[in-house]
């Protein structure tokens, strides 16, 4: 058996996790058919020859096409500087704001000001320059209202769920709109502020465990419990 660790085991960087031919998912490095964890992770043995390493902490590294929620932190002559909860600060150029070319605005702060939140897409990123954002497409743009919750970037896939099952459950049950930024920022907008609050609470609770067997079930349970105690409006 090539896998040397058991499910649920916390492995440290440099620790041997498998030896021989097998599939390792998650950050690792290999040398002479020996496989080692690269970052502090939890091991999940998915099959006899398939091991998944789930990092316990992960920074958000921008990927082209990702939807992210950013915060404007500075304004330059032709672009806004946007914090995307990443070691890399992003830039939103004026040309990426309007679908059609417009007159160059003298005062960029009238369009977006420092402190504004935006839902944006990563237009391009390679490590040699700052990530570039766009808000030209539909469903992107400045955020007017709602609640923002920050989750560890490593939990983003869990909040979305396979084929969106987890986030859809939250949206449908609580009648809220949820935008999950790949950078660990989640926006919840709903008509009932109580349902918004429940959604935020559920999202936070889902992120607590290092590993969840069935996030969809857990989400449903958490929503039910919260509704029973809070008495918010819901439609099944």
């Amino acid at each position: 058996m090539p896998i040397r660790v058991s499910s649920g085991q916390v492995v440290v960087p440099g620790e041997l996790v498998a030896e021989g031919k097998c599939e390792i998912l998650g950050p690792h490095f290999s040398h002479n058919r020996r496989h080692y964890a690269k970052v502090l992770s939890v091991a999940v043995v998915e099959k006899a020859k398939r091991l998944r390493l789930i990092p316990l902490k992960k920074s958000y590294v921008p990927v082209e096409g990702d939807v992210v929620i950013g915060k404007v932190v500075d304004i330059g002559p032709t672009a806004w500087v946007v914090d995307i909860n990443s070691p890399y600060t992003a830039l939103l150029q004026v040309s990426e704001v309007f679908p059609r070319p417009t007159m160059l605005q003298r005062d960029l702060s009238r369009i977006l000001n420092v402190g504004d939140l935006i839902i944006a897409k990563i237009l391009s990123f390679d490590f040699t320059h700052d990530p570039l954002l766009t808000i030209k497409e539909s469903k992107l743009g400045k955020v007017g209202k709602g609640l923002l919750v920050e989750v560890p970037p490593s939990r983003v896939s869990r909040i979305i769920g396979r084929r969106g099952q987890v986030v859809n459950t939250i949206k449908e049950t609580l009648k809220v709109e949820v935008v999950v930024g790949r950078n660990g920022r989640v926006l919840v907008v709903g008509r009932e502020s109580e349902n918004e609050a429940i959604a935020v609470y559920v999202i936070k609770r889902l992120c607590e465990e290092a590993y969840l067997k069935n996030p969809v079930l857990t989400a449903k349970r958490l929503i039910e419990e919260a509704l029973r105690s809070e008495g918010g409006v819901v439609a099944w």
Partner: peptide
């Protein structure tokens, strides 16, 4: 530090 918050896991296909 981290074992306390790791639930018991069975080898099912899951999303982390």
């Amino acid at each position: 530090k981290y074992s306390k918050i790791v639930e018991e896991v069975e080898s099912e296909e899951v999303i982390g």
